[in-house]
Amino acid sequence: MSRIARRFATLRAQGRGALIPYVEACDPDYDTSLATLRGMPAAGADLIEVGVPFSDPSADGPTIQKAALRGLKGGSTMKRVLEMVRAFREGDNETPIILMGYTNPIEAYGPERFCTDAKAAGVDGLIVVDMPPEEADLLAGPAAASGLDIIRLVAPTTPDARLPVVFSGASGFVYYVSITGVTGTRTASTDELAAALPRLRRATDLPIAIGFGIRTPALAASAVRVADAAVVASALLNTLEGTLDADGKATPRTVPDVLAQLRGLADAVHAVDKTDSK
């Protein structure tokens, strides 16, 4: 059983939902992002998304765009991202790590070598934003051979008839992009979420995470009431950005402030009793 499947099984047994925070690699430098990553499990992260900086994140809003540029400026390369995961794994062998990024840096690294090295570093799953099922063959073979989960995105625009296409070859969990839009902008209403989840549940038995627009503990809690996990990215990155000095460098507040916010989000998520759900 993969770390991701194990983690969701444990949470289900405990009747809890999951909080999945996001950290951009090398934002604003390697040490700060590693310290944040290392502090996340104790602050309540159940799984963690590590963003792989890309120069042209065309599905992301301004917050993640800026984080990606800071990450690149901070020296991020695919090799460096994997080094960071390996360093994290030295102290944590349980918390699943999911890399989130775009196709081109993976293609440049070489899909097979990437999957082998990512698995060896301790990565558990991949979310490739601009790789829909129609283009998934680039990674499907190497990921399966390495035992990496491919986490599929599903959107409000995905019609029911297409759901089987999206979920074929999916593993780990499913990421529901709750709005039509880019990250960190609009928030889906409770009604929209309540309407969306049943149609996804009918099409997959995988756990479902909701992302895009979840910025407060209350929103995170309402997401896990209907889904299995809430992903929070832009809200944490906004906090990080607010702690940087005038030159964009990390300050002593950077890591603690991000982790404190994460703790608040995690407490709200973990207070939701899901014992009776499903």
Partner: peptide
């Protein structure tokens, strides 16, 4: 070529 886009755009 191909269609390397986010799922939101794929149905479109």
């Amino acid at each position: 070529g191909g269609r390397f886009v986010a799922e939101t755009l794929m149905p479109l």
